[in-house]
Design a protein around this nucleic acid. Structure first.
Length: 829
DNA sequence: GCGGACTGCTTACCT
DNA sequence: ACAGGTAAGCAGTCCGCG
């Protein structure tokens, strides 16, 4: 079977080339297509060098709801269009308007090819008489039919639903792959630079998912020989050139090359080094593009680029890792970190230690693609299918580009002209609501003021995929918001000034709505069902849809999105606010005790079942959105702060949301006490248990308090704050925050400090107030600040528990007499 | 000259 | 480099204080 993994324009051959993965031989093969040429559309014909053909074609203009005739200009090379774009930009910069209206001139040539030829990236094909054809999988087709019946989309979405389902139901191969990691000699201070590549590569390790482990080392002068045997092949080279050639040779057996940061380091370093050592460029299988590095005759996946995608971090990996580096991610996902041996710098390591270190990196990199039934590889594959983007691109590009690509595909499919961003903005760029946050474009979600306290038997109901559901139910998209029809102008909802089209269906609402339906009706259940043989795959599909759906609302308000149209997002949140407030009002009219709510959720205290059922039925009926019971807390501990609570589920699991103790910058000493506190809280079963645990928690906090007072902590590390330097040092021109101060101090002492660094610092006495952790002496610590922090962090829990800091912790009793509550009162309300 | 009230900046979180 | 809303701490400013 052949799986299309990428599509590109081959400069040398002058044609489109499809990269195929042959699952029967585990190799990469190619398919060439000379029958496609780049084109763009324009209102009028105009002269241009390189035109092959110009003809009038029909398109539908969704923005203006008209059928139009436009000129399609086919040219002999994509450079012609790039030249045209340059001219347009140039004119714009000079303040002139380009005299012709041009469409679809910014679409990447290979993507245009994919859309127009309906190329299903990541799907199985067969080649018959030189023609590629989708290989029909009858089992998958049967499931698709069953699924469409179950999802039951309206007539106009049936085909779309089946099409997407196919992408998710068709079989996936287990890609043969090998990871690669290199070590470069350095003096321990400066990171080796791949552009100059002055230092030699001293080790390269590779590990494949077929069980091979290759370890290659360069013999370094008179370093004493030591053996490394944890590999299927170990080889020592006296010539670095031979080592590199061997790597290139070995890689030929692997269609997928996996690295961690290979785009920016390993691959360009290998390439530059190879060139320096006079390896002819024809023998170097590495192509360095703009911040992307590809491997010829293979697919290079840089896991760093994939894991750094914010939406992946949040929705597919549930924030399990907070920093993007190999050590953090592998610890979070496969519970094993990098190798830490005797020496810190590779130059000081023995051959054995060096190869152990290097191999561990290769091993972790490979395992990140293989754990959990190749979850990561499958995610990349499914996202490629859904977005119609090559694997090499989808794994590197931000989510807005995936969504753009999906929407473009639908446009081409339906013969709709892809609108120019400037036209969308001109016609419907205006928002009308006022954001609560200064500088934001429009009003967002509602957050209900929580009722502080300990609340037993609290249920959380929420609207499943609220925003995607709104997009679908209210027919939202750039073309349908404030459409050109006067007869639609009264079609308004939720007191929003915008109206929505009644006559036409929005492409975006249909697409996102269908994805959402598939997830809710089919994939969500099956991804969790232990009896389902395809469970893991379904869970991948479910997560992929979730990632896309969750971002779909936001991209329309992101000004670099190609279909930027903020009223779409504004309308979604507007209806969202309406829905949640109506539902709360309804709940209260039923006599239900609503404790809290955020965006799409409602926390209800101990509701009678029948009232709850009634509310859910009402919501479902009123809004046609699944309102489901999400969580069942044994009790919830709400402080008066929004987005800030702790809940204990029936099974004793503890949900912590937004509390300071959970934040990554918080010093370990507080995290440790908090995790003890959590254990105590998890033991509370009934209201009667509260007083005893309350006393224990009180003791814990008091102990920490006196530990600080007496300066009795294990290590200064425990007091360190960890704050990310999110900008370059010189870009903090408004204020100088503490972590920046600490970073500058480090810099002055010769440390390497740059954007993205997590600065570790301690609050100290004296004018500077902070010092880098490693340069702080114990006696410099400003305990007062730490006690303040302890107070503030724990008040989030202590306050609902009825513990008063000044009275109960410090034992200064004046105030406590007035706010000392009887424990019984805590549990009433 | 110093401290409280205030605003704005920054980070990390929630949905 | 999907959005807005919230918490928290600190930096910096203004103002009043005889």
């Amino acid at each position: 079977m052949l799986y299309i993994v990428s599509v590109d324009f081959d400069e040398a051959l002058g044609c489109i080339v499809l990269k195929l993965y042959d699952s029967s031989t585990d190799t990469i093969t190619y398919h060439y297509d000379t029958n496609f040429a780049p084109y763009f559309l324009s209102e009028k014909k105009f002269p241009l060098e390189g035109i092959v053909k110009q003809e009038l074609v029909d398109r539908y203009d969704a923005l203006n709801d008209t059928n139009i005739k436009v000129w399609q200009t086919i040219v002999n090379h994509q450079n012609v269009i790039m030249g045209l774009n340059k001219k347009i930009t140039y004119e714009k910069e000079k303040g002139n308007i380009f005299p012709y209206i041009v469409w679809e001139n910014y679409i990447k040539y290979s993507q245009s090819y994919i859309y127009d030829n309906d190329i299903k990236i990541g799907m199985p094909y067969v080649r018959e008489k030189g023609v590629l054809m989708l290989n029909i999988d009858h089992e998958a087709e049967t499931r698709v039919k069953e699924l469409v019946k179950l999802v039951n989309p309206d007539e106009s979405r049936k085909i779309l639903c089946a099409e997407i389902a196919k992408l998710l139901e068709y079989p996936a191969p287990e890609f043969k792959r090998i990871s690669l990691d290199i070590e470069v000699l350095n003096d321990g201070e400066i990171m080796p630079n791949p552009e100059s590549a002055t230092m030699p590569i001293i080790a390269v390790c590779m590990q494949s998912n077929t069980g091979e482990r290759f370890a290659f080392a360069l013999i370094q002068g008179d370093k004493p020989f030591s053996c490394y045997d944890n590999a299927t092949k170990v080889q020592f080279f006296s010539s670095e050139r031979d080592l590199i050639l061997a790597i290139f040779e070995f890689s030929k057996n692997y269609p997928f090359i996996i690295t961690f940061n290979g785009d920016e380091f390993d691959l360009p370093y290998l390439a530059t080094r190879a060139a320096r050592l006079d390896i002819p460029s024809s023998k170097i299988p590495i192509t360095i593009q703009n911040r992307i590095t590809l491997w010829k005759d293979a697919v290079h996946i840089d896991l760093y680029k994939f894991f750094v995608i914010k939406s992946m971090q949040t929705y597919a990996f549930q924030q399990k890792y907070k920093n993007v580096d190999l050590d953090t991610i592998s610890k979070a996902l496969i519970e094993e970190g990098k190798y830490h041996g005797e020496h810190e710098w590779v130059g000081d390591m023995s051959y054995e230690e060096l190869l152990t270190y290097c191999m561990k990196d290769a091993e972790l990199t490979l395992r990140l693609t293989s754990y959990n039934n190749s979850l990561v590889m499958n995610l990349i594959l499914v996202l490629s299918r859904l977005s119609y983007m090559p694997i090499e691109y989808v794994s590197r590009k931000p989510i807005s580009q995936w969504i753009r690509s999906m929407i473009y595909y639908e446009h081409r499919k339906q013969n709709v002209i892809i609108p120019r961003s400037e036209d969308i903005i001109l016609l419907k760029g205006q928002t009308t609501t006022q954001a609560l946050i200064k500088g934001k474009k429009y009003k967002g979600a509602t957050v209900i003021d929580p009722i502080a306290g300990f609340h037993f038997k609290t249920l959380v109901g929420d609207f499943a995929s609220l925003y995607p559901s709104i997009m679908k139910n209210y027919n939202l998209g750039y073309a349908t918001v404030n459409c050109p029809h006067s007869e639609c102008k009264n079609n308004k909802f939720a007191n929003m000034p915008h109206w929505i089209c009644r006559k036409n269906k929005a492409i975006e609402g249909r697409l996102i709505g269908t994805l959402k339906d598939l997830r809710v009706v089919w994939y969500k259940k099956r991804g969790k069902d232990k009896t389902e043989p395809r469970k893991e795959w379904y869970s991948v599909a479910e997560q992929s849809i979730k990632v896309i759906c969750n971002a779909a609302y936001g991209v329309f308000a992101s000004d670099d999105f190609a279909l930027y149209c903020p009223p779409v997002s504004e309308y979604i949140t507007g209806i969202g606010r309406f829905i949640i407030s109506q539902t709360i009002a309804k709940a209260q009219s039923f006599g239900l005790n609503v404790l809290y709510g955020d965006t799409d959720s409602i926390f209800i205290k101990d509701p009678p079942q029948e009232k709850l059922d009634e509310l859910m039925a009402w919501a479902m009926n009123e809004f046609n959105i699944d309102f489901e019971l999400d969580k069942h807390y044994r009790y919830i501990c709400l402080s008066s702060r929004k987005k800030n609570y702790l809940g204990v589920l029936e099974n004793g699991d503890v949900d912590v949301k937004g509390l300071t103790a959970k934040k990554k910058h918080t010093p370990k000493i507080f995290k440790d006490v908090f995790s003890e506190t959590k254990k105590l809280l998890a033991e509370i079963q009934k209201p009667e248990d509260v007083p005893a645990k309350r006393a224990e928690i009180l003791k814990l906090v008091k102990t920490t308090y006196s530990k600080l007072k007496q300066r009795k902590w294990k290590s200064n590390e425990d007091l360190a704050f960890h704050v990310t330097l999110s900008k370059r040092l010189e870009d903090y021109d408004k204020t100088e925050p503490q972590h920046v101060k600490a970073a500058k101090y480090l810099l002055s002492k010769g440390y390497n400090v740059g954007q993205g660094l997590e600065v570790s610092y301690i609050k100290t006495m004296g004018k500077e107030r902070v010092k880098p952790t490693n340069l702080t002496k114990t006696e410099e610590v400003d305990i007062k600040k730490y006690i303040e922090f302890l107070k503030s962090a724990f008040n989030q829990i202590l306050e609902p528990l009825g513990i008063d800091w000044d009275g109960d912790i410090l034992g200064v009793c004046q105030l406590s007499r007035f706010c000392n509550m009887d424990p019984k009162d805590l549990n009433s309300a």
